[in-house]
Simulated assay, not measured.
Amino acid sequence: MRTRFPPDRKLTGRMLLTTFLLGLVYVAFAAALFALLKSIVVIVVVAAILLGAQYFFSDRIALTGMRARIVSPEEQPRLHGVIDRLCASANMPKPRVALAETDLPNAFATGRNTKRAVVCVTTGLLRRLDNAELEGVLAHELSHIAHRDVAVMTVASFLGVLAGLVARFAFYTQMFGGGRRNGDQVAIMVLLITVVSVVVYAISFLLVRALSRYRELAADRSGAMLTGRPSALAAALTKVTGDMARIPTRDLRAAEAFNAFFFAPAVGSRLSALLSTHPSLEVRLTRLAELSAGMGEPSA
């Protein structure tokens, strides 16, 4: 089903290029391991099992990790009402709706497809945002679902982690299965596999983070265009980011593992924008301001 979320050609082009480069990295990684180990069957089997588990159970993993529960329209009429209106406007199926009892102001979407999709909102977010701001955030999350961002990022991020896992597995395979290799040959093999793994992990990590930032900007744009109010999304971003500073550090650190899912990161990167899952607040607000001006949205 085609939704009414408008495409962003430039961002789509950047995402396709990043995905293409990521694919090249893994083709090279598989070729290197095949050349070193003379077999790729084990690699494919391990990859299939781990990818399948993460892909098919991503919604359960995320909801369990956030201690969230599915809520009915009777329990959360405001939340369901906003999502009902947005889904009708976007011409897309309504996802399941979940609530996490935490003061951390955030939201995320998960699930491998529209049938398994879930939009989760925290009680902290509901308490802080007015209806227009909440609508902006939920439109952003529904854009992720419509564009299958969860599945794309699951596959992309999985491969980076797999680089390290396969390298270690290959090491033990050689240790216990390569009977004719002497100690020096094993040491050289381990060194080569380690170097390949480190290089592949580093490159893939940067590419996946870049892909994540592009998809966040695309979700900002398409969500804001669906509601027709980029300023409301900008206000929500500003409010959520500011209030995050007042959340206890231990709670932010506990939620950091979900940064790639969240509307706004619980803990931002202090090292470099290259390491962040999200664009900076300044970049997002600038893009939304440009969109607002282009749409002729009246100033608040």
Rank of each mutant, 00 (worst) to 15 (best):
M225Y: 01
R181N: 11
H80L: 05
A289E: 09
E133H: 13
A167H: 11
L233I: 11
A90W: 00
D84Y: 02
L237H: 07
L159D: 13
I247W: 05
V150S: 15
R14E: 00
L63M: 15
A224P: 05
T241F: 06
M1K: 07
P230K: 04
A163H: 10
L159H: 14
R253M: 13
T122W: 01
V45I: 13
E256T: 07
M1V: 14
Y201L: 09
L192N: 06
L206M: 09
R209P: 00
A273W: 01
F34P: 01
L134T: 00
T64E: 13
E133F: 12
T122H: 05
S222Y: 03
D243Y: 00
E133S: 13
M244A: 01
R246P: 00
L285N: 10
L24D: 14
Y214G: 04
L275S: 00
G13H: 01
G124S: 07
V42A: 15
V186F: 07
R148I: 05
L285V: 15
T241D: 08
A163R: 11
A187K: 09
R270L: 04
A53P: 05
A234T: 06
Q76G: 00
L11P: 01
R60V: 07
N113P: 05
E75V: 02
M225N: 02
T123C: 08
V186Q: 14
D243A: 06
L285A: 09
N91T: 09
P6V: 11
P73L: 02
S72V: 07
L16M: 07
E282Y: 11
I203C: 10
I83E: 08
L142D: 11
E297N: 04
S157C: 07
R67M: 15
S269N: 13
R221D: 11
L63P: 10
T12C: 02
A266L: 15
A156L: 12
M225V: 00
A167T: 08
R148P: 03
A98G: 03
M66T: 09
G223I: 01
E101W: 08
K239A: 04
M175E: 11
K10H: 08
V42S: 15
R246A: 09
M92K: 01
T286F: 07
G183Q: 12
G23N: 12
A90G: 11
V200R: 03
F29P: 03
A170T: 01
R213D: 02
P6E: 14
F29A: 09
L233K: 10
G268M: 15
R127C: 01
E256M: 04
K94P: 13
A53E: 05
T238R: 15
F20N: 04
Q174H: 03
N106H: 08
A167W: 10
A31G: 12
M225T: 00
P73V: 05
R96T: 03
F169V: 03
M15Q: 13
V186H: 14
A48S: 14
A293R: 08
I188Q: 14
F29T: 00
G294A: 00
L50W: 08
L211A: 04
R284S: 14
A30V: 07
R229F: 05
L138H: 02
T64A: 15
L16A: 12
A218T: 06
T122G: 07
L63R: 11
D59Q: 15
L275R: 04
